[in-house]
Design a protein around this nucleic acid. Structure first.
Lengths: 131, 131, 131, 131
DNA sequence: GTGGTCTAGACCACA
DNA sequence: GTGGTCTAGACCACG
């Protein structure tokens, strides 16, 4: 399950799915012909309404990113060249994500050093668990 | 007026203002005590309704990022999240930010190892620069 | 619909709704998980604009008193302030409430000693009852 | 200085002064002919704009509760019988204030026992001070 | 001048 | 059906 939904972000849930899927295809994480999780399975996994997933898939199909075949499922469409991201572009986007993390950490009152240490722990040990 | 609104992004306008202001404060572009543009001036500059700007400012105020003084204007507040929120809550929110970063990195086609290496570089050397 | 609005009090309508809901939750009149009237239904019942009710609900949500689920409605949340706010902040806010009580008692002509005695009675015997 | 202003309450500052003064007169804390603090002194003490105090005083005069004599100051007017509160009414209002305190304490996550203990400390030792 | 509240009403997101 | 966003514009509170 590699989707991540933030219900407090203000961005519609269906758009979050749309954007994450579109980016994964553009980055080559999802390859042509590969099958996406079924609407029902993804809705269950994300604990959201199936209509919301369906909406995201419809928009993805409308934009030519996936193909929906009734009775079979949703599949990544043949990739258009202009949708593929260069390594430079991928690095640029990742750096933007780093920046967003730094902003969050700042406003949560963490110093850059604390952020670094906590990230280290997080990446090696995984999310903190209660108990 | 360094705000810019993207009406095609799907993110509510008031949230775009909120995020940009938050980012500007974290980056030191807006300093403690500094005055933000008036609600009406910013609304005019961005060609949006003053209520939308007011909403953004109110959210910024309730998150402790700015202080609004009636009849005077909006000013960048001193940072204080670490005094208001419990450490558990602050860690919980930071971990959520970590999750978002991990998901985005995955969707950009980076492996956890690459992410870790790139973060290491980023945190020690600062943002990558073109050229 | 046990809300009532006093348009002559000077207190904003949205705040009156906020305070009454908060009080109802504290008193156990509204229990965890219970659904509040829909924004539109309450607005109609109180003969006010739906936006005003929505504002009250949003403030209640950001203070962790209710949870709003799009397309479903507003529900009383589980209490969790003690998990989000630091103990220092909670004590600070409680002390402010003490101050307000002291001022009001003074303005009602009670001495600090009377206040203390009456509080003692109140806290041990519960609210005074007529008769 | 027996006024207490809550700038976060949403109730206009001038109204808070008005209500507190009116109640003090009604309860007999302020007696006929007694002088109120000057506009300038009160504004300084409460760290608010003198115009705001002046506005409160004007409303108090308009309602016959005080008399403003240019060059001399503001004085409590002869009390109208209907403005005087019975002991029963004063107790009723104090009980309401107790209730408001309990609601606050509840939502801040304090148990009734904690509230009682903290109140005891507060009333005997005064507000907690840093250090 | 500043921001705050409220209304009326359009249109969107989501179940 | 639910709530969310935005607009246009009136009127108030405050400096």
């Amino acid at each position: 399950m590699w989707f991540h939904i933030d219900t407090t972000s203000g961005t519609p849930v269906y758009l979050q799915i749309y954007q994450q899927a579109k980016q994964a295809v553009a980055a080559g994480v999802l390859r042509s012909g590969e099958q996406l999780p079924s609407v029902r399975a993804l809705a269950e996994g994300l604990v959201i309404n199936p209509n919301t997933v369906a909406r995201a898939y419809q928009e993805l199909e409308r934009d030519g990113i996936i193909e929906i075949i009734r009775g079979k499922g949703a599949f990544v469409a043949a990739r258009k060249a202009e949708l593929v991201l260069s390594r430079e572009e991928r690095l640029r986007r990742l750096t933007e994500a780093f920046e967003r993390l730094k902003v969050e950490a700042y406003h949560l009152g963490f110093t850059p050093e604390e952020l670094r240490d906590l990230l280290e722990v997080y990446l090696t040990e995984g999310p903190a668990r209660p108990g």
